[in-house]
Amino acid sequence: MWCGLAGTFNSLLAARVVQGIGFGPADTIAPDTVGEVFFVHERGRAMAIYTVFLSGGSFIGGTAGAYIAGQLGYRYIFWITMAMCAAVFLLEFFLVPETLFDRQAALVAEQHPSVMGDGTYSDEKRAGVETVERTIVLGDRMTFRQSLSIGVYRGNLVQHFLDPWRSLAFPGTWVVMLHYGGLLGGLITISTIGPQLLAMPPYLWGDNVGLLGLGAVVGGLLGFLPTYLTADRLLTGRAKKESHGFAEPESRLPALFPALFLATTGIWVFGFCAANPSPHAWAGMVVGYGMVGFGIMQIPSIGFNYLIDSYHAISADCFVMTTISRAVVSFAWTFFAAQWVETAGAALPFGIFGMIMGLFALLTIPLWLYGKRMRIATAGYLPNHENH
């Protein structure tokens, strides 16, 4: 709403900061919820469904946004999205139950029901039972209305603020957040620069510049199918070959290689076609955008599942860092990209962006080969609590 009402650039900038504060938790909590709800052999497909909506919303919104801004004015982009966000907020508030649950305290209450009466148990166990009584009604005694209560909170605020930064001690966090940050940086740069180029000669697309996003829509849909089919199959197939029936998280990583290749080369394809305008060069720009769209569909799906499988106890903290890296890299790339393209042409900037993405992609190889050893070496940094 603030963005739609903003009368100055500084006001719009401040409103965007507030938007970022709101988007951050959503981008962090949603993938972690998938990890909590689904079993290890189901997470790949579930994450693929989540990711296709995550990326598809951006692509379809970018395509529609050009027409909305051209016909109604750019402010209506904010008014329409505000209405959708308000609807989601109401559905969340009234229909989605609170799932925060103190498992350890519940187990204490279940195993030692007399702790409330005779005082024969430790203070720690008594405190656990009291925590359950204060925060949540156990078992079938909880009504749906009670499950919608909010404000259940435990722990130290400063400690929770610092925890995500400690996840940087794990190589897997770095690889996934660099993948995601570099990919989103390239994607947002294309979505920012592409419409500007298509609005100029020899294209002169006018309000149709948003059609560039259809390439990403098609690429994302093409990326969804192999992700949905292979994300879990690689893991379960590997488990069947092991006598103990288990597979390591690294079994998922080979599914990343095609997407990383397409994302890297897609940035180059877009940059080459943008640097050599002709009446039909737009087709190459659309294809390049689609290749990156394929990557944004598959890479987070596999990478997020790797973090959940590898560091389940701190996966939410890892997702905080991936969200931060995405925001920082995307801002850094787009902050100067338009001026850089204007002065140096599109080939050099997108060539460097693709090179950076390629370097990030190469980090997947040592993680695939030595990821288990890295996890063993850094296991001491994991939190030592009952849920790990």
Rank of each mutant, 00 (worst) to 15 (best):
C3I: 14
A6G: 08
G7L: 04
T8E: 12
T8K: 10
F9A: 13
F9Q: 14
S11I: 03
L12D: 11
L13C: 07
A14L: 15
A15Y: 09
R16V: 10
R16M: 08
V17W: 13
V18I: 14
V18S: 10
Q19V: 08
Q19D: 12
Q19S: 02
Q19G: 01
Q19M: 13
G20W: 07
G20L: 02
I21W: 06
I21T: 10
I21R: 09
G22W: 03
G22Y: 03
G24P: 01
P25E: 04
A26T: 07
A26H: 00
A26Q: 09
D27G: 09
D27Y: 06
T28W: 00
A30Q: 10
A30S: 12
P31N: 11
T33S: 05
T33K: 02
T33Y: 03
G35L: 01
G35I: 05
G35N: 05
E36V: 02
V37D: 00
F38I: 05
F39C: 06
F39V: 12
H41A: 15
R43N: 06
R45Y: 00
A46I: 02
A46M: 11
A46V: 01
M47F: 00
M47K: 05
M47N: 07
A48H: 04
A48M: 05
I49T: 11
I49W: 03
I49L: 09
Y50A: 02
Y50T: 02
V52F: 02
F53K: 04
L54A: 14
L54E: 10
L54Q: 14
S55W: 14
S55D: 12
G56C: 08
S58R: 12
S58H: 10
F59R: 01
F59V: 01
G61K: 03
G61S: 06
T63I: 12
T63A: 15
T63M: 14
T63N: 04
G65C: 03
G65E: 03
A66S: 15
Y67T: 11
Y67L: 13
Y67G: 10
I68G: 08
I68Y: 06
I68P: 13
I68F: 07
A69C: 02
Q71H: 11
Q71G: 04
G73A: 07
G73L: 04
G73I: 05
G73V: 03
Y74W: 15
Y74Q: 08
R75C: 13
